[in-house]
Computed example of a mutant assay.
Amino acid sequence: MTSLYAVPLTEEQQAFRDEVRTFIAEKLRPEWRGVSELWSRTDMAALGGWTRELIAKGWATYDWPEEYGGRPLTLMQRYILTTETGSARAPLIPHVNIHMVGMLICEFGSEWQKSHFLPRILDCSDFWSQGFSEPEAGSDLASLRTTAVCDGNDYVVNGQKIWTTNAHLATELFTLVRTDPDAASRQKGLSILLIPLDSPGLTVRPRSRTSGDGRTSPFCWVARRDSAPTNRPSSSTASSPTF
C-alpha cells in the first residue's frame, strides 16, 4: 500500500494518525463524503455536520486560544489531520468561518463580538462569506471604493463586491471598506465590518458558470445601497484595527 506521507511517522505521530482514522470511520457519514463546494443547502448541512464533529473533538479550532475553545495541534498533527480527512473525501471545514473571522474576533473583537459570534461559529449557526474584491479592486485592495459612514450605532455602506464566495448561502459577511476617504494614502483609512447578509439594501446575486451547465457559481456579486447592520452594539459592526 502506498503511503500518504513523504516522511516516516514517529510512533506518536502514528498514534495520532490512527486516532484520526478511527474518528473518520465513526463520524464521517457516507452522504458527507465528496462535498467540496457549496451548491445547495444540502451541501451546507453536510459541511456543518462534519465541522461540528471536528469542533467537538477540538480539531477544527487548533489555532484559537484555548479560552475560546481552541486545542493546540503541532504542525505535523495538522498535516496528518488534513491528509487523512482529504484522503477520506471529507468536506473541507469552513476556513473563512474558523481561521479568518474566528481568529480575527479572538484577537481584535470586542467582548460583545466574542460572546455573540464565537459560539455561533462553533455550532455552525452562522456561515461567513468574505467581501474583499470589487469590480475595480482585485488584488490591489487599496483601490477599493466601497464606503462606510458612521451613523450612530450603524455604518451606512455603499458599494459593490465581487467573487464573494458562497454569499448566496451565507448568513454573515466580513468585508473591507473605506471609512476614512481623507486618509493620508489609499492604503490607509480601511476597516473591516461584520455585516448580516439579510441587511436592508443589500443584494446578493450568484454568477453563472462559464461551463454553461446551468449551475450557478459559488462566486457572487454583492451590492450595498445605504445598507447598515442593525440591532447590534456599535462595537459589533467594526473590528479593530482600522488600517
Rank of each mutant, 00 (worst) to 15 (best):
S36H: 03
S234K: 13
R145M: 11
G131E: 01
S36F: 04
S36Y: 11
P65S: 10
E84K: 00
F132Y: 15
P181Q: 13
L28H: 08
K57Y: 01
W64I: 05
G138I: 04
F174T: 15
S115M: 04
T165A: 14
L197R: 03
L144V: 01
V156N: 03
G138C: 06
C106A: 14
C124K: 08
R205S: 12
E12G: 02
A45G: 00
S235C: 05
L190W: 02
N158L: 08
T85V: 03
Q187D: 12
T22V: 14
P233E: 13
R21S: 07
V204C: 07
F174P: 13
S199M: 09
D154C: 15
Y5E: 00
P30L: 08
A170R: 10
G48F: 03
A15F: 08
S208E: 15
A56K: 14
T175H: 02
V35E: 03
H116W: 09
F117A: 06
W128D: 12
K188W: 01
L122H: 15
S110I: 03
R33W: 10
G131S: 05
G48R: 11
S240K: 08
A46M: 05
S185L: 09
S227L: 02
C220V: 06
E67Q: 12
N158C: 09
R29Q: 15
G58W: 13
A15E: 14
D226F: 12
V157C: 11
T175C: 06
G138V: 06
A56F: 09
A6S: 05
L173R: 02
P30W: 03
D63C: 01
S185M: 14
E26C: 11
E84M: 02
A184E: 07
L54E: 05
G34W: 03
L28Y: 10
E67F: 07
I121C: 04
L193K: 00
R224T: 08
G86A: 04
C106T: 09
I121S: 09
G212Q: 08
R41I: 15
L144T: 01
T22L: 13
S211T: 12
G212V: 02
A170M: 03
D182M: 03
P135D: 10
Y68L: 14
D226H: 13
